[in-house]
Each structure stands twice: as C-alpha cells, then as structure tokens.
Design a protein around this nucleic acid. Structure first.
Lengths: 238, 238
DNA sequence: TTAGTCAATAAGTCTGACATAAATATGTGC
DNA sequence: GCACATATTTATGTCAGACTTATTGACTAA
C-alpha cells in the first residue's frame, strides 16, 4: 500500500482541453503574438461545446498564457507574462531548452531560499514548529524501506522548515519545486536517488534550528541542497 | 502627458464578479472549508447568468482559491493553496494582518533575490544586457522631474538586472513586487518617496555589474534595497 | 486629407435543457 | 435488526442556439 493516494477526481473535458491547448502554447506550437482560432473553430477542433472552450480560455488567460480581446481574438502572450509559479505550465512543458531553463531557475532559487528559510526558522521557530520538523524527521527514519513514503516525509521536512520561517512566499516555491521533482522523476521513469547519509544531513539541519544557530542552519541546509542539486542535474542529463 | 498609459480594457462582467467573490474569500468573509452558494444562487446574488458565474469560479479555481466538486459544491481552499504570486490576490486583500504578512514576505524575498540577481548579472551579463540596464539608469536621471516616469525607469532598472541574471523565476517576483508597491502607494494615496541619493546608489549597482564585481554588485543592491525597505515599511505604518 | 459612418467579426452574455458524479435515503434479502 | 444493493436528490459539468457589444477596416462625404 503506497503512502500517498491522490484524491483522483473525475476527468473534466475542460481540464483535458486546457492541458492540450496550454501544452501547445508553452511548447511553442503557437507563437506569442499569434491569435488562436476563434472559439467556434476551437469547438470544431476539439469536438466540444463553446462553454468548455470558453472555460479553458479563461483558465489559460488566468495563467497569463493568452489574452482575449473582442473582434481581435485570443492572442498568445510572451513567456514573461506566464505565471511560471503555476505548476501546470511546468508539467505541460516537454523536455527541451525551455523546460531546462525553468528547472535551472527553480533550483537556483531553491538554493537561495531554503538555507535562508532554515536560518529564519532557527531565529523564529516555536516549540510547535520544532515538533512538526522533528516528526517529519522521525517519519523519514521510519520509512526508509518505502520509497514513496520516505520521499513524502522528506518533503514534509522541508515544508515544515519553510512554514517555521514564517514567510508565506517561500511556501509557494516548495509547491512548485515539489511538482518539478515529481515530474522529473516521472520522466526519467526511475525512482529518486537516495544517498545513504541523507538522514544525518537532515538531522544536522534540525539540530541547528533547535539550537537557534542561524548560521549553522543556513550552512547545513546549503550542504543538504548541494547534494539534492547534483542529483537533479544527474536526472536531467539522463 | 503622463509617460505610462494603461491600455484601458473594457469592463467584463466576470472580471468584476471574480474580483468581488475573490475579495470575499481572501478577506476571510468566507472561511476555508466552507462551500459557496451554488451556481444558481450566485446568479441571483450577482444578477448575472450562469456562464459568467462559471467563468468566475474557473478563474478562482485556477488561482487556487476554490475547488469545485460535483454534488458537494464549490469549497473555499486554505491559504496555503492560494497562488500568492498572482497579483490579483494581493490587490484584492484589504489592509490587515494577512496583507501585511504577505507584503512582509514579499519584501523579505526581494531582499534575498535581488542582491543575488545583481551578483549573477555581474557574472553573466553580456553587452546587450548592460546596455538595457544603462539605458534605464539614464532614463532615471532624465525623468527626475516626472515622478511617474521616474518610477517607471526605476522598475525598468531592476527588471533589466533581473533579466540579465538569466533566472526566469526571479522575473516573476518583480512583477508581484511591482504590483505590491503600486498598490501600497495607491492605498496611502501619496506619491512614492524618493531619496535624493537614489541615483548614485543605482549607479553603484550598475558600475559593479559592469566591472563583473559579483560581491560588489551584491552589496550595492542590498544597500539600495535596505533603503527601499524602510520606505515601504514607512508607507505601511501610515 | 480628414472625419464620420457602417458592416463584419469575434468575444461576451443570456437562456434553458440535459448529463454526470456523489451524498443521502430507501429498500431488500438474510 | 443488519449488511448490501438500489433509488433519489443535488450540485457541478456539458450542450445548443440566440443575442449583445466592442473593435477593426473599409467606405463615404465634407
């Protein structure tokens, strides 16, 4: 029995159509500046009603991929307007330079944010925060046999530290990072690499936070991520 | 003639309804876990058709504010699912603890990201990148009389450095930061404070980048933002 | 030229119907 | 009386077709 079970929502037409249309855009099959076929034409193309098409276009517009204007049509936007922090855009991207740039940017940002979050946690963490972090650490130790559950506990550890940092923006990141890692593992169709000394490295971060050692927490997290970084880059090169 | 004129799109019903419904959610008038009135009831409440209501709910769902489930209804999500990097959520929030926490988080993140971006720009910037930064700097000098244009050039300066860093995620931030600052100025209904020595400080950042002095660029940007930070906090206290 | 008018087009809105998923109620056999 | 299967209810999801409105580009008159 796997540890994490996704709620498994039923398929909705507009989700599928959004995915396909969105993928066409983020993969450059439709160039920015270009206008999509009009709504009626899209109905014919996808074989769905106009309601479905319109809801898709609303979704894509909310993600910044397109803008709809009367009489003009729905025009594709330049990538700088895309909401990259939305996990969907990431998962719609096919392997290629654009995805690689996005992943590299995400990793760079993570390397910047998480050590700082650990330092902030060391400064601000309350007893309850520490307990959540420690629980995640215990879960990691207890689930070394079950890869999925172990990975889940690993994420929970990082999430707990970021939560303890008190910065709500940092939390948004981890969500995207998580999706990026899962996507990355899915594509390379092999299980996440797990180093033997991962656990003590995680524990080192926790110890520093508990000791309110800001610099130590920063360094320990940087150390931990340096490892994660090389692993992900190895995945990407596959 | 002001420098920046917004395109001035026509009003769309579902934009207005999204704004109102979204504001109700982000301001806690509807508690996470609670289900909204069903679509028919919302039609009556807002006096619009179901198409409009449905497109709104799709927008709010895309922003992570709600999730729609058959038979259950549309249920409000907890804030950790909200796409905080979306500028709308920020601008829908009324003054209060939640907004203040979000702004504080954004500023903390900015203080972390921009100096790093400057350092990366110092390492990676090509001639074309430097030219864009320098042009923005010249614009700042040339528009000291016109506040709007000056602020615009200021943003362009930061945007150019972030673009030169080559990190696409950093760019997403500046978009939100920009909205946050504009909102902040709008609410306090006074013009952005501008220090007399702002220009030389900006120039110092550019000089360090041009000289490929990573540490210097980092420090100069941190210095510049330390100032910006105190200004924004002063605005918030008003 | 310039300004005003008009037709064409695509998004935006409205209406009403039916399909489908899921929680609740109802019934049936043991 | 209990467990399991079935029906009902209720909300979202989808469909169809009509009408409205904004915007452009072409046409026309001063």
């Amino acid at each position: 029995m796997t540890a994490t079970i996704t709620p498994l929502r039923r398929p909705r037409m507009h989700d599928e159509v959004s995915r396909r249309l969105g993928a066409m855009i983020v993969n450059g099959e439709v160039v920015p500046g270009e206008t999509l076929p009009n709504e009626i034409a899209l109905c014919d193309l996808f074989g769905v009603s106009r309601s479905v098409i319109r809801e898709c276009l609303r979704v894509l517009a909310t993600k910044g991929l397109v803008v709809a204007r009367a009489r003009i049509g729905t025009v594709v936007q330049t990538p700088d307007r895309w909401q990259m922090m939305d996990g969907d855009i990431l998962s719609w991207m096919e392997t290629g330079p654009a995805l690689e740039q996005l992943l590299t940017s995400l990793i760079e940002t993570r390397l910047l944010i998480e050590p700082e979050a650990a330092a902030m946690a060391a400064r601000r963490a309350r007893a309850a925060d520490l307990l959540v972090i420690e629980t995640a650490l215990d879960d990691m130790a207890a689930t070394e046999a079950d890869r999925d559950a172990h990975l889940e506990a690993d994420f929970a550890f990082h999430a707990a530290i970021i939560a303890a940092s008190g910065n709500v923006i940092f939390g948004q990141f981890l969500g995207v990072i998580r999706k990026a890692l899962i996507e990355s593992f899915k594509r390379s169709s092999r299980n996440p690499t797990q180093r033997r000394d991962a656990l003590p490295r995680h524990a080192a971060v926790f110890d520093a936070i508990r000791a309110k050692d800001e610099a130590g927490a920063h360094a320990a997290m940087a150390e931990l991520l340096g490892e994660a970084k090389s692993i992900l880059f190895a995945e990407m090169d596959t």
